[in-house]
Nucleic acid binder design. Structure first.
Lengths: 277, 277
DNA sequence: AAACAGCGTTACAATCAGCGAAACAGCCCG
DNA sequence: CGGGCTGTTTCGCTGATTGTAACGCTGTTT
């Protein structure tokens, strides 16, 4: 069953995940990128040739050749004993290079530290990637029970404080486009009703920050607000997050402190308060 | 001069950077990996098509196609205005996924925090990648003048405290192999004399830690020691680093505290003290 | 032990996808 | 306006990449 029926080669551009990057492309490289990213997406640390081939609907031979190529550049490693593959150090280099060039991250770092210190909770930084968002930094407080998010993981734009903080401050047409999609529920508390989401977006705009109780992660809560760039677009979102029980009482004071931070950073990025409606 | 004389396609496997990953490979994917990694290696944040083509000796058309493929998967982004390319968010995802699966990093994190707190200096964690090493984590102290290293950057194994700590505890044949290479000087203080390096390796083994004053970075100093895995091989190196002037007096006390940390972590990784010669 | 079932890896020849050269299309500067 | 840059596209040629199928190998099952 390993090499079952497979679509003919030509039908490549079928899925077209988001950006149609000008038809002039290289199918082999796209496949290689899929293989590479599968290590991050699958959640499993090591993968075998057959496993990848089945998951991505490629032939074992193709996967094997691609892995050999990626391996020659250190993006992928092989465990000589088990013959299983995992991400290599050059992958880390790529990621850290990307993060290094995110100036909002460099600017935000000391503010995250201060924010976490003052609230005794975890402070996070997220950036948007089309119709998802990703944590790119966090600072955890020095106490016993803390919340820790996983950097690099992607989440939809409608579930959780940080996500909704992005969504609420996008241009209306982008909001409409996003809401037209399927809205998956990550927990029982995730808001998937479109009308309810629209009401909440209005509320978030009015208050300047979003909050969530268990929408993305059961037992967790957060307040989140965007950092605006010079064009008034949300360049990043900062959140303060922790356990639901604590936030029942803390949430308002955290939000006040949070807005100080995002306001300061927005000004650093050249945002003019006055422009805001 | 853009598309000058280029070697014929067949001569691909010429360079063979290190791991000859079984001839069964895909040249196109190797080229794509080179393009991708060039963003991290070149140091420049944005690159143009011609720039990449010249640097890597590829045709503009090939680079353009590769970039389109990488772009379709979010590994590369394009600035629509300037038509220049940069790393995309999926690159971050890759890197963070790699770091997440490094168990030594997860284990070391709280120890780095404690180490930095106790020494009032920066604590770093490095892993080895064949004949180089790379910072994968750091914790900076809460004081005005601090040292900060750049995560993801690679350094040779003979320059600086962390590097020498790796080198000294490798198997003899690997040390010999490394010393047979060209030893580049990063600063005026970098030790490039082979005999002197061998003497220092003996010293490092005797003391259990390495130190450096400005060997990798002018004005900086460090003490560094390896964390051993269950086989007795150095799985990572931890360093305490800061400004040279401070280390003139601090170095010994930092080293004592450092060895507590690395000892504890080595035991966590299953290292049996007794085995050590 | 022997057969099996799974893995990763390699060989092979057909073919189609990727190739480079060159033309094209913007942009900026003098 | 024209030259010199970009990035992008076109277009046939061709050989690199492809999937199938066979190969070892390891571990488990019978």
């Amino acid at each position: 069953m390993a090499s079952g029926v497979r679509a003919p080669r030509a039908a490549a551009t079928a899925a077209d995940g988001g950006t149609r990057a000008s038809a002039q492309s290289v199918a082999t490289v796209e496949r290689a990128a899929d293989v590479l990213l599968h290590f991050a997406a699958s959640g499993r640390r090591t993968l075998g040739v057959t496993e990848i081939a089945d998951d991505l609907d490629l032939s074992k031979a193709a996967v094997h050749r691609i892995l050999a190529a990626l391996r020659s550049r250190g993006l992928i490693e092989i465990d000589e004993q088990t013959r299983r593959y995992s991400l290599g150090p050059m992958s880390a280099r790529l990621g850290l290079a990307y993060l290094d060039q995110l100036d909002v991250r460099r600017l935000a770092r000391p503010e995250l530290v201060a924010l976490s210190r003052d609230t005794y909770e975890t402070a996070t930084l997220s950036v948007r990637t089309r119709d998802a968002r990703m944590y790119v930094d966090q600072v955890t407080p020095d106490r016993e029970v803390i919340m820790s998010v996983s950097l690099g993981a992607s989440y939809p734009l409608h579930a959780g404080g940080s996500s909704k903080a992005f969504l609420a401050f996008l241009p209306d047409e982008e909001i409409d486009a996003y809401l037209a999609r399927d809205l998956e529920a990550l927990t029982g508390a995730t808001v998937v009703d479109r009308a309810a989401l629209r009401r909440e977006i209005d509320e978030i705009r009015a208050h300047g920050y979003a909050q969530s109780f268990g929408e993305r992660q059961v037992g967790a809560a957060s307040v989140a607000a965007p950092v605006f760039d010079h064009r008034g677009a949300p360049a990043a979102v900062i959140s303060v997050c922790g356990l639901s029980e604590r936030f029942a009482v803390e949430s308002e004071s955290c939000a006040r402190r949070l807005l100080e931070t995002t306001g300061k950073l927005s000004r650093l990025l050249g945002y003019q308060e006055s422009k805001g409606e």
